[in-house]
Amino acid sequence: MLKSLLNAISFQLFWFACVLGGDNWAVAAIVVYFVIHHVYFVRTHREWWLILLFVGLGVVIDGALIFDGWLLMPPSIWTFPIPPPWLLGLWAGVGSLFFHCLSWGLDRPWLLSVLAAFFAPMSYLVGADFAEVSLGRSTIATWALMAFIWFWVMQVGVFAAKLTQKRNGRKHHV
């Protein structure tokens, strides 16, 4: 229970570091967060596959949202045609939660998805203000799209986490 709470708190601190710090601080925050995560939380190397899956989801999903004008990014040192490091770091961070503070949701994937459909858009909207990201559509339309996306992202995450557990020979990895 304490590790789950520490996982949630460390992710929140990581979220603030990435969103408020932008490109430069995000790289340092990503390194620090994942070194701590690896040392203190990771019990099997297979967890890293779930984290990498979420980075891939971030490239595709946020990349499409940026490309299609839903998210308008501020000027950046990042010139690659994928989302900036601070945003991909957040996706990786979400992947790091499934075996820890979100482990309860592996048995309740629909509840986890409904909660994500509410809280993830809130995170985007608050984060957009902090990170000087503009919304290319109305707040209501953006909220609705984010709710839809994150409902299904959580389903994918639960499926991948369960698959990882099955391959690891464990029912629960808490």
Rank of each mutant, 00 (worst) to 15 (best):
46 R>H: 14
124 Y>D: 07
28 A>G: 05
147 A>S: 11
40 Y>H: 15
74 P>A: 07
56 G>H: 10
145 L>M: 12
25 W>I: 01
130 F>A: 12
121 P>N: 04
153 V>S: 01
62 D>P: 04
42 V>F: 01
162 K>G: 04
35 V>T: 09
127 G>E: 08
87 L>W: 10
85 P>Y: 03
97 L>K: 00
80 F>V: 00
136 G>N: 10
34 F>S: 12
103 S>K: 10
61 I>K: 00
77 I>A: 10
113 S>C: 02
7 N>Q: 03
116 A>N: 14
55 V>D: 00
96 S>K: 09
44 T>Q: 13
114 V>W: 06
23 D>F: 10
111 L>W: 10
39 V>L: 15
122 M>W: 07
96 S>H: 09
21 G>F: 05
53 L>D: 05
96 S>D: 06
71 L>V: 06
145 L>Y: 05
129 D>A: 15
21 G>Q: 06
158 V>N: 07
99 F>S: 01
19 V>C: 05
149 I>N: 00
99 F>K: 03
77 I>V: 12
159 F>W: 14
15 W>D: 01
10 S>M: 15
81 P>D: 01
124 Y>E: 03
79 T>W: 04
46 R>Q: 14
147 A>E: 03
174 V>T: 12
151 F>T: 06
38 H>V: 11
119 F>E: 09
57 L>D: 05
47 E>C: 15
129 D>M: 14
93 G>A: 04
151 F>L: 08
146 M>S: 10
84 P>M: 05
32 V>S: 11
174 V>Y: 12
54 F>V: 00
66 I>W: 15
108 R>S: 12
31 V>A: 13
57 L>H: 04
94 V>A: 11
122 M>R: 08
120 A>C: 05
167 R>G: 13
55 V>H: 00
143 W>R: 01
35 V>L: 13
55 V>A: 13
77 I>F: 06
163 L>A: 12
49 W>A: 15
87 L>Y: 04
173 H>E: 06
106 L>C: 04
113 S>L: 02
122 M>Q: 09
173 H>L: 12
92 A>D: 12
168 N>I: 02
149 I>G: 00
155 Q>I: 11
1 M>Y: 04
22 G>K: 07
121 P>L: 05
63 G>F: 09
22 G>F: 09
95 G>F: 01
97 L>W: 01
173 H>P: 01
106 L>A: 06
104 W>V: 15
78 W>Q: 04
117 A>F: 00
6 L>P: 14
34 F>M: 11
11 F>M: 00
39 V>T: 11
151 F>I: 06
61 I>L: 08
